[in-house]
Each structure stands twice: as structure tokens, then as C-alpha cells.
Amino acid sequence: MANITVGLIPSPDMPHKIINKIYDELPRAIQEQTDYDGWHFDKHVASIVGTAEHMDKAMDIAANMKKQKEWDYAICITDLPNFSNHKTVICDINYDNNIALISLPVLGAVKLKKKLKHFITYVIQLLHNGSSDQQLLNKRHFKLTQFNTVIPNEDTDDQNHERIVVKSTTLGWFHLIAGMTYANEPWSAIFDFKK
């Protein structure tokens, strides 16, 4: 079997920092899940993925970058929130283009590196196999959080686009607020006040 390349497209700031911390661990993490050692990762920081006015275009940007760089899969990681019917969206997946968009704040602020690494490997399995064991996602690193997979309303003709949302609205918002607070690094402002 040929090598498989996964392109990671983080927005600047927190997504880029977290990706840098887990980047070297990802090939081994996905290898353990798939029993295949031909996984390679590439990354490209894209500021347009982190701007609100272009959130709806992030999937198109990922598809174009994937094609240009000849990646097999592309995953955007943004620090912006995403919503669907009042539920927080952790991930959008397009199976036709083999791309996904992960909203980092919805993972919360606790054990963020482990959660992101686990969620990226979970999404890669979804894209690669067309399915994965959602119970594994729910129980391993997200003990209190349950997820649902839904088809976006605006894509009723497209059955190859799925969204993973947090089942509980309250818990989803709690994680989102904690995650956005962590992403803004308020502790850095305290040091500025001391100066």
C-alpha cells in the first residue's frame, strides 16, 4: 500500500501552537489505530481559516490546498466556533473531497493536546474507512461529552457531508466558552499589567 499524506491546515495562534506540540506524535497515533505505518503529515498555516467572514469558505480552501499539495486528506483546525441548530459543532466532514474542519474551542480547555490528537486520528479514520467506532470517541477522552452525527440542513442533496455536534447544548456551550477563553490566553494580559 502506498504512503498516505494528511495535510493539517491550522489557523494562526492557538491551533498552530497546539498542532506544533502534537505534530510529531500524530504518525504513531494513527498507526496504532490502523495498523498501517505509511502515514505522513504535512502542515500549512492559513490565516484565512481563522477569519469569521471566511468560515464558510474554509472547506473550499482546504479542498484547493489538498489538490495543490497532492495530499490524500486535509484537516483544517480553526479557533472559531461553529453552530448547527443551536448545537456546537466540533467537526464538519466532506467525504467527497476527503476534507474536514475541526473547531478547536469545542474541545474545551482541559487536556486539549490529547483531545485534539485523538480527534484528528478519529477524523482520519472516518475519512479513510468511511466509518469509525463512535463509542471509542465518546468514552476514551470525552467521558462526559456525547456526540451526534448529523447531516447539515443546507446540504440535503449532499449525503457525503456530515457534522459531529455535541449532544448536550449546555455542555457544548460550557466547553466552547472554556476553549475560547483558553485560546485567548488571558494569563498573558496579567503579565502585561505587571509591567
Rank of each mutant, 00 (worst) to 15 (best):
N3A: 14
I4A: 10
G7S: 08
I9E: 00
S11T: 04
D13P: 04
D13Q: 07
P15V: 06
K17C: 14
K17G: 13
I19T: 04
N20A: 13
K21Y: 10
K21Q: 12
I22D: 07
Y23V: 08
D24P: 05
R28V: 14
R28E: 14
A29Q: 05
A29T: 11
I30E: 01
I30N: 00
E32L: 10
T34D: 05
D35H: 14
G38H: 00
H40F: 11
H40V: 15
F41T: 02
F41M: 01
F41Q: 00
K43V: 09
H44F: 09
V49P: 06
G50V: 05
G50Q: 02
A52C: 09
E53T: 15
D56K: 15
D56L: 14
A58F: 04
M59W: 03
K66T: 05
K66C: 04
K69W: 09
K69M: 13
K69V: 13
W71K: 07
D72Q: 06
D72R: 04
A74G: 09
I75K: 00
T78W: 03
D79G: 12
D79K: 04
L80R: 05
N82I: 08
N82W: 05
N82P: 06
N82K: 11
F83W: 10
S84N: 07
N85M: 06
N85Q: 10
H86N: 12
K87H: 04
T88S: 03
T88C: 06
T88G: 03
I90A: 01
I93L: 03
I93T: 02
N94G: 12
N94T: 14
D96L: 11
N97V: 15
N98L: 12
A100H: 02
S103L: 03
G108C: 02
A109Y: 06
K111G: 11
L112F: 04
L112E: 02
L116W: 03
H118F: 11
F119R: 04
I120P: 00
I120D: 01
T121C: 15
T121H: 01
Y122W: 06
V123A: 07
Q125W: 01
Q125L: 13
Q125V: 09
L127K: 03
N129W: 11
Q135F: 07
Q135I: 07
N138D: 10
K139R: 06
R140F: 14
R140Y: 13
H141T: 08
H141L: 13
F142Y: 01
K143W: 03
T145D: 00
Q146T: 11
F147W: 00
V150A: 02
I151M: 08
N153G: 10
N153P: 12
T156V: 15
T156Q: 14
T156Y: 10
D157F: 03
D157W: 01
D158A: 13
N160H: 12
N160G: 14
H161G: 13
R163M: 09
S168N: 04
S168A: 02
T169I: 13
T170R: 02
G179I: 02
G179F: 01
T181I: 11
T181H: 09
E185R: 13
P186R: 02
P186M: 07
W187Y: 08
W187F: 11
S188F: 12
S188Y: 11
A189F: 11
I190M: 12
K194W: 14
